[in-house]
Design a protein around this nucleic acid. Sequence first.
DNA 1: GTATGCATTATTGTAAACAATGTTGTTCAC
DNA 2: GTGAACAACATTGTTTACAATAATGCATAC
Lengths: 225, 225
Amino acid sequence: MTQEAVSRDTSRGVSDAERVTSRLRQAIVAGEFAPRQRLVETDLIEMFDASRGAVRAALAALTVEGLVEKVRNRGARVRAVDLDEALEIVEVRAALESLCAARAAERIDEGGVARLRAIGEVMREAVNAGDGEAYAQANRDLHQEVMDISGAKVAPDVVKRLRAQNVRYRIRLAMQPNRPTTSLPEHLEIVEAVCAKDPERASEAMRAHLNSVYEATRDYFAQRG
Amino acid sequence: MTQEAVSRDTSRGVSDAERVTSRLRQAIVAGEFAPRQRLVETDLIEMFDASRGAVRAALAALTVEGLVEKVRNRGARVRAVDLDEALEIVEVRAALESLCAARAAERIDEGGVARLRAIGEVMREAVNAGDGEAYAQANRDLHQEVMDISGAKVAPDVVKRLRAQNVRYRIRLAMQPNRPTTSLPEHLEIVEAVCAKDPERASEAMRAHLNSVYEATRDYFAQRG
DNA sequence: GTATGCATTATTGTAAACAATGTTGTTCAC
DNA sequence: GTGAACAACATTGTTTACAATAATGCATAC
């Protein structure tokens, strides 16, 4: 095991537990495990070639993060987020990301302006080309870049954790063919407002965008679940 | 161990790991462990009469919660929150609790009005009697009750975790002798705004109160650390 | 007197065995 | 044929022992 470990990706200075936590988190967020799917320790041991201790530590960590739920003596499973909670998450994101957008508008420098405008350009092109995957990636980049520029730590951390929790709703929403018709102008307004160094406008643009996400999520999933 | 466990407080249906997590969290928040104090597993095993596995699970959970930090092969210690982060936490609380206050104003019923007004009364009396401890408790009760009435889950969870992280700043701030002169009217306005079922006013009252907490925290700790 | 290398110790990381619990399937009585 | 008791199995919870790592103190060379 020790020799084998040396040959593994990130075994340098990273414990097995952290490695398993990271990979399991990624697998859940990527949708490789369905909601409510059981996470049997033995299976995970084989899957990640790790010890039981590492697997248990990972499950404990992801339970605190809200990605996994455990029932005593019955094991762990992928936590299913229902529509009500998904909508609450969007509300919280609206409150926190609008705050970060305002801070970003106050602090942005030339490099930040260039990066944001570049993301905006990628979005335009992705929509023109009908490339949903590229648009989704640029969407992630935009939200992340705004939070990076804000210089904050606490709010982005919270947002990151919450985004992981309802990744499923976001993905399925983003797959809607004409969703960009609504969201592209909102995204571009966020870019312009932050680059204009107008905190009030930036905050409002971000809030408006996430309100739109809220409504689209609610309307789309109301029946279908 | 098994026989002994039966005689323990909450051993019914609660794993050792959960018990240790809960008690260690409480001890840290209560200030029984100083910031940056080392948390040696052996010591915690004796202190809580638990297995090493339980102690390790507890440390892992509290690390994710942000109360503990771990360094590989060097152990765990109580995480120290610096002033910048404490102020960020107050900002995030302002964003989330004002949201909850608005929701509470929309949803409150007669029972909620009675409970909020009762807390307001306790606050008035505590200030009159100069009872700082009673006032601090009522403060906690008020913020909690507003979040309970809001019916939300996500935002209150986040706030709870963040409040635990900078308990030290809150406590020392609350000990300021004439702090209630500023905060009591703010608290009473929150009560009245929520009871008046005015979401906009409630949101603004909560935001104003936490802005005041922000400024008081910044000014008081700016030099002293 | 200081610095460097080595041995010792303290502490955490990992693995494996054991115990307790819940689940499932089967048998037997009615 | 149905329901209850029971037994076999699967899975997690707990404990113990062992390995790896970093900190500490000491001896020795310069």
